[in-house]
Write a protein that binds this DNA or RNA. Structure first.
Length: 740
DNA sequence: GACCTGCTGCGGTTTG
């Protein structure tokens, strides 16, 4: 599929200049021949010698559908053919989604059949008979999710050494999707445990379209030897980019159902993107439903076929797969979506990517744009829409700064420069460590504390955890009321009663949390699911799956909602948490405020708002000061730092009795009764260890945010939060900078 | 003021 553009006129032969082709095993050369490829892609020419000659770990960075998968599988399969290794999987491919594994299976099936190598897909939807065959006759390629690999460790721990004894390489697809989250830590732990079980180093190959600072990505892939990781980037990447940022002013308050600005955005989309395949990223499921419904209505009003369909994780699998197929087979389809369509399977040619509101990371902007303009000679098109509140005499100064628009500009600039966010520095990840301790104990039917510490903390990804903290965690897990583990008379750690119950439930294998949900059903057909947190009542009307419904009945025991068609309704609220904006993005925002240049990609409304924002920036004095008095008890602090650092200062001030609200690089502090005392408090917080961590325990902060947090005590929860969600070490410098 | 991702074994019934 990646090569469909080169199959026309299949009488071509592979160019004699291709050195890579000559080095592949003969059956693979014949397969390439039979496909009619007339050349190997740039990234493939680079990857073939790198994988055949060396033994180094490798990162392959190239655009979606550039032939990355073939770039690594053709040479890796060549070595598997030429030097058969015996029983065990030759190659392991790790994919973050089931859909991607199914897709790769279809691409590899035909190639592996001609090579007489087995290829086994392995995830929750794969038939047990196929898994049983893979266990009986391990060999060839295993395509598996991190969670299914986890299940193998827990349920077949004793078979692991044999299954992976001959594995030459682990290929990790969509590496960027696993960099900055608990799932990525989980995978790194599994990779270490795989090497320990096989008793040797197994080569790691990471694939991605967009990656941040490479030094940190290398460290993620091979923490003990980051500099040995080789990096391959496609040189044929550069292509034309067309970008516009349009701004709209909301006159009647934001987030209103009758939002005139949202309707204007829909009008513009309707007028300009119909007649081609497009992706519209709307930033929340609620907005996805709003725009999909609005655009469908507009089509019906003028009696033309609807081209707009919603896509997000709460919609039924069938409606999502139908839309993905529709995108591949038709030329007149627009998906209004969340990040569901950001990664994963090939969805064909996309004419334009629209982004309503700034995204939360530059990395995802890269990834989204990578979905458009992939045909040679075709430009990538990005349309960004910024909705800003109207400003009046009584508006808050923060509203006059138009932070959303300025962030959108900062992110577009950084994206054009090729920058993106890096993996977070070492956090403790105590929830995931708790999970992995249970898993190692289950895998080995009991393990010593020393063995677990070596596996997970010395060699694995939990290197921020020292012996003392590790023992504190073990003792918490073994405490009477928690009872996840217990110690036998000879010192071996075993699963406790509670631990046994948790590990033996299929819900154990994933490290991430998922909310409880109601299924929503119309005439016997499931439309999707809605989180339990959403308040629902009979007779209520909603917009869901791009249509309008009335709730007929709610069954709280079965967690089912029955609906019938309606003419009214508004999108449900799905809930969620706040995003984390990087320091670099905020610093760029400050430069934009202080600058005078108007980027050519702004429309006239956006230019006007940027001008107003800069005027307000200077009027407030933010160009020369970081402490602005807004009222008798109200000060604006300009940290010009990202969410983690700014939120840390906010929390620190709360422990001193102040109230502080976090904005992009700015902190709105209220309840300041005495300015002198406030300044003294800031100085105190700016000293090394000036933050009273115990005082955090008294604040109403929610520390239970991850799946296994519920088994930890307050002390452990606080340590975990301070290592990830806060950055106490940054306070002295942050507060020092406030004096400039 | 957000989004996404994953999942085993077994018991019962039907079919060849």
């Amino acid at each position: 599929m990646a090569h469909s553009d080169s199959t026309a006129g299949s009488s071509y032969s592979v160019s004699r200049k291709s050195l890579g082709f000559d080095r592949l095993a003969k059956p693979i050369q014949r397969w390439i021949w039979s496909k009619g490829w007339n050349h190997l892609r740039d990234i493939q020419e680079q990857a073939i010698p790198a994988l055949l000659d060396g033994r180094r770990d490798l990162i392959v960075s190239a655009a979606t559908a550039s032939g990355k998968t073939e770039a690594v599988f053709l040479p890796l399969l060549s070595t598997a053919l030429e030097k058969p290794g015996g029983d065990g999987f030759d190659l392991v491919y790790i994919g973050p989604t089931k859909a991607l594994i199914n897709d790769q299976f279809e691409r590899l099936e035909d190639l592996c059949a001609t090579l007489e190598l087995p290829v086994y897909p392995w995830h929750g939807d794969v038939l047990q008979s196929i898994k049983a065959r893979a266990r009986r006759h391990p060999g060839g390629v295993l395509l598996i999710t991190p969670e299914s690999l986890e299940a193998l460790f827990v349920l077949r721990g004793l078979e692991i050494p044999a299954l992976f004894s001959t594995t030459r390489a682990v290929v990790i697809d969509e590496l960027h999707a696993l960099l900055n989250n608990e799932r990525g830590i989980h995978l790194r732990s599994l990779l270490t445990r795989l090497e320990i079980a096989a008793n040797r180093t197994i080569r790691r190959v990471g694939l991605s379209a967009t990656l941040g600072e490479m030094a940190l990505v290398r460290q993620f892939l091979r923490p003990e030897a980051p500099s040995s990781v080789q990096l391959l980037e496609s040189s044929s990447a550069s292509r034309e980019l067309q970008v516009q940022i349009r701004a709209y002013v909301e006159k009647h308050g934001l987030d209103n159902d009758e939002s005139a600005a949202k309707k204007s955005v829909a009008d513009h989309l309707f007028a300009h993107i119909r007649g081609a395949n497009n992706l519209v990223f709307a930033e929340s499921r609620q907005n996805v439903e709003f725009y999909a419904d609005r655009l469908r209505q507009m089509s019906e009003n003028v009696r033309i076929p609807n081209e707009f369909y919603p896509h997000h994780a709460n919609l039924s699998r069938k409606s999502r797969v139908d839309l993905e197929q529709h995108l591949k087979s038709s030329n007149f389809v627009t998906a209004v979506c969340t990040s569901t369509l950001e990664i994963g399977i090939d969805i064909g040619d996309i004419a334009c990517v629209a982004q309503i509101g700034p995204p939360h990371t530059v990395a995802s902007l890269h990834q989204r744009l990578g979905r458009s303009g992939r045909r040679p000679g075709q430009a990538a098109v990005l349309r960004m829409y910024a909705i800003e509140g109207a400003v009046g005499l009584n508006s808050h100064p923060l509203d006059r700064l138009h932070l959303g628009l300025v962030r959108a500009i900062a992110m577009v600039e950084l994206m054009i420069e090729g920058w993106s966010e890096s993996p977070a520095p070492l956090a403790l990840h105590l929830s995931t460590l708790t999970h992995q301790i249970l898993s190692v104990v289950a895998q080995n039917c009991g393990a010593s504390a020393n063995q677990i510490f070596t596996t997970l903390c010395r060699k694995g990804p939990f290197q921020g955890v020292d012996t003392k903290l590790f023992l504190q965690l073990l003792s918490q897990m073994g405490s009477k009321d928690v009872n996840l583990i217990e110690q036998s008379s000879d010192g071996l750690l075993l699963l406790g009663k509670k631990g046994e119950r948790i590990v033996n439930h299929y819900n154990f294998f994933a490290v991430f949390q998922t909310p409880q949900e109601y299924r929503i059903i119309a005439q016997g057909r499931q439309l999707g699911v809605i989180p339990v947190v959403m308040m629902m009542s009979e007779g209520m009307t909603i917009v869901f799956s791009g249509r309008r419904w009335r709730i007929k009945s709610i069954d709280n025991d079965a967690k089912v909602i029955h609906v019938g068609a309606s003419v009214k309704g508004k999108p449900p609220i799905f809930g969620g948490s706040t995003g984390l904006i990087d320091d670099v993005v905020i610093q760029r925002m400050k430069q934009i405020f202080a600058g005078s240049n108007f980027p050519i990609y702004l429309d006239s409304c956006a230019c006007g708002l940027l001008h107003d924002a800069r005027t307000e920036f200077r009027k407030l004095g933010l160009d020369s000061s970081c402490q602005i008095q807004l009222g008798s008890q109200n000060v604006l602090l300009a940290t010009w730092a990202g969410t983690v650092k700014t939120a840390t200062l906010a929390i620190a001030l709360r422990t001193c009795g102040y109230r502080a609200t976090v904005y992009d690089g700015l902190l709105d502090v209220t309840r300041i009764r005495c300015m002198q005392k406030f300044l003294e408090c800031l100085d105190q917080l700016g000293l090394p260890h000036g933050l009273d961590e115990d005082a955090l325990l008294d604040s109403d902060l929610n520390l239970v945010t991850e799946k296994f947090h519920r088994y930890l005590n307050l002390d452990l929860l606080l340590k975990d939060a301070l290592s990830s969600r806060f950055d106490a070490g940054a306070l002295p410098e942050l507060i020092q900078n406030l004096h400039h």
